[in-house]
């Protein structure tokens, strides 16, 4: 047994050394994510629908795969920028394109600042405030994602009433993550919004110097808000839409 174990340990040690060696370079780079939205699941959350209508939607659209979007996170040890990979999305065969809404979510961990540029509800909003990280609960599951050992952590979003499950890399000591989510001891490589309503998965990670790429785009006629104002606006909109018996998440990020 010990004879067997030794080479194993040795390999592990080698691996560990290699990983810790690599770690110095593993704090800057780009993550490309695939964001999949499962609409029938979101539809099922609409309180104004009867069980019959929810089941109907689920049964009719069960073969539909989640609609896919390509997202991009550029990160350094102290800052990160998240948005669409490109200005437009395309059909699977590339023959049809459509415009993506403006989205640039900037996090500055050193100066505890966050600036979000988000096109929604027919306007481009700029939300500026001090950095807010959700309160996380660290789980016991481990999983490998894109060659990195990840641990799960969960939190909740009280505005949209969601459970968020993040998988963060132990060996990438960066607190950044996709969407408006951050604040874990490692880079978030997967985010599951509300038990699979939306799944944001890592497609690839590239480590390279990117500090120069983290720039916020200029916004003409920005509508400025702070975090509180942003949350109030979302809450009001969600409540109004539910009252109008419309799915609010067609027009705001889920």
């Amino acid at each position: 047994m010990t004879r067997l174990l030794k080479p194993v340990l040795f390999t592990l040690l080698l691996l560990t050394t290699y990983l810790s060696e690599a770690q110095t370079n593993q704090t800057e780079g780009v993550v490309l994510y695939t964001r999949r939205t499962f609409w029938p699941k979101i539809t099922a959350r609409m309180t104004y629908l009867s069980q019959e209508q929810k089941d109907r939607a689920a049964n009719t659209w069960k073969n539909e795969e989640g609609s896919k979007e390509k997202m991009k996170l550029t990160f350094t040890p102290t800052t990160s920028l998240y948005g669409y990979e490109s200005e437009s999305s395309e059909s699977e065969d590339g023959r049809y394109t459509w415009r993506n809404r403006e989205l640039a979510l900037f996090r500055d961990f050193a100066n505890e600042k966050q600036v979000d540029i988000e096109e929604m509800l027919g306007k481009v909003y700029v939300v500026e405030d001090s950095l807010r990280a959700p309160s996380w609960k660290i789980g016991n599951q481990v999983r490998e994602i894109a060659g990195h050992m990840c641990i799960n952590a969960t939190t909740t979003d009280s505005v949209k009433d969601q459970v968020l499950t993040a998988w963060f890399a132990q060996d990438i000591p960066v607190s950044a993550g996709p969407e408006r989510i951050c604040g874990l001891p490692g880079l978030i490589l997967e985010l599951d919004i509300n038990n699979g309503d939306v799944i944001i998965e890592t497609a690839s990670i590239t480590f390279k110097p990117v500090a120069a790429d983290i720039k916020l785009p200029k916004v003409k006629k920005p509508k400025k808000l702070d975090e509180k104002g942003y949350e109030t606006m979302l809450k009001t909109y969600i409540a109004e839409q539910i009252k109008e018996q419309q799915n609010p998440y067609w027009e705001i990020r889920y």
Partner: peptide, 18 residues
């Protein structure tokens, strides 16, 4: 080692260790 392989190789396999 066996467990490590589970975790490393089976990408879609979340493994809980308590």
């Amino acid at each position: 080692k066996e467990l490590y392989e589970v975790v490393v190789k089976a990408a879609r396999a979340p493994l809980t260790i308590r």
